[in-house]
Write a protein that binds this DNA or RNA. Structure first.
Lengths: 186, 186
DNA sequence: TTTGTTATGGGACGATCGTTCAGGTACTTT
DNA sequence: AAAGTACCTGAACGATCGTCCCATAACAAA
């Protein structure tokens, strides 16, 4: 089966992807509330009807965007852990650095990701996507650390959210002791 | 100065409060996205123009609502801690029970509160209100536990959010070991 | 070439939105 | 009693929204 040889479908898929990426940029800039067919189309440089053609409804567009976003996040976290492990580090420094980056230069993206969380709270079909990075991490850990892992993951989420409402992003140095505390075994 | 003797202002203040409470109910039901002058007015049983009269813009209405919501949350947390302390408990059971309640019967309210967080991330004027319950707790604790406290608070926030995207609310029994782990001194 | 399918995009429709305005009521002050 | 202030509300305006329709272009299968 040659599947993707059809030039029309290929172009369609490419444009679908462009629309999804434009949607993510809109969410980073203005939040989920700023997502309309027209703003997304303008951001992607396509006519308004193009977004309605490729996504049956605005809801579908949002869902597709947030699922794609969650997928990126999961693979990113996976490689981060993998890298830290191969260095034999327990990871407090790495995690603190990653948090500081997520709350500083990548702040918009982080806000978008947490809007996914809350949207998933209201829409069950988004929950598997929202849980993906939690599942990825859980599967990488020895089953006897489960409680410690859950506490750690919850702590990371909390530090993220609380960092988002700080007047200026916390530095890795400020975050490290807290992360270290969360990582400490008992 | 008699201040609130003016019957007109009294009625105005009362209606303002009713509108704020109606707005909170709308947020619990449909999220911040569902807040419009018309939905709020319908929920409060007042004409649409009443919400625009008492709040210069929809933004002001949202801000007033979320600030009021944050204030309630802060005093609630204050008394919760006070109660736990007077019982001499370290509080793992109490906290786990409170989490389970927030994620079960009071789920809508909890979602509304976390939408405040994300809105505050985008609107600096909301941040003091969003931080209030953190400040209340921080001020009730010995300064040498600061790192442990920050880790604990972050963990609570994370458990809340993650609990919101579970397919069914976690029970207090499931949460207790994680909370206990977060509370354990080192 | 003919036929069928998919993508594209201009234009428009009805609904809903935030907000304004003007006329009216209720209350206080003078 | 008269003037001033604060609240109330029906009606409406312009803007923007999601979505649909239809003609056209690009491409594949026959």
């Amino acid at each position: 089966m040659k599947a993707q040889r059809d030039g029309r479908k290929m172009r369609g898929d490419r444009r679908r992807q462009e629309i999804i990426e434009a949607t993510l940029r809109v969410i980073e800039r203005d939040g989920v509330a700023g997502v309309t067919h027209r703003t997304v189309a303008a951001e992607a440089g396509v006519p308004t009807t193009s977004t309605t053609y490729h996504f049956a409804s605005l809801n579908d567009l949002l869902i597709a965007t947030l699922i794609s976003c969650a997928k990126d996040m999961a693979t990113e976290v996976y490689w981060m852990i993998d890298r830290a492990r191969s260095r034999g580090s327990r990871g407090a420094n790495e995690v603190a650095g990653l948090l500081a980056e997520a709350l500083g230069p990548r702040r918009g993206r982080t806000m978008a990701e947490y809007e996914l969380y809350l949207l998933a709270a209201r829409r069950p079909e988004l929950r598997p996507a929202a849980r993906r990075w939690l599942d990825v991490l859980t599967s990488m850990v020895r089953p006897d650390d489960l409680v410690a892992l859950r506490a750690f993951l919850a702590g990371i989420d909390g530090l993220m959210i609380q960092g988002l409402i700080d007047d200026e992003p916390p530095s890795a140095e400020e975050l490290r002791p807290v992360v270290d505390h969360l990582l400490q075994p008992r």
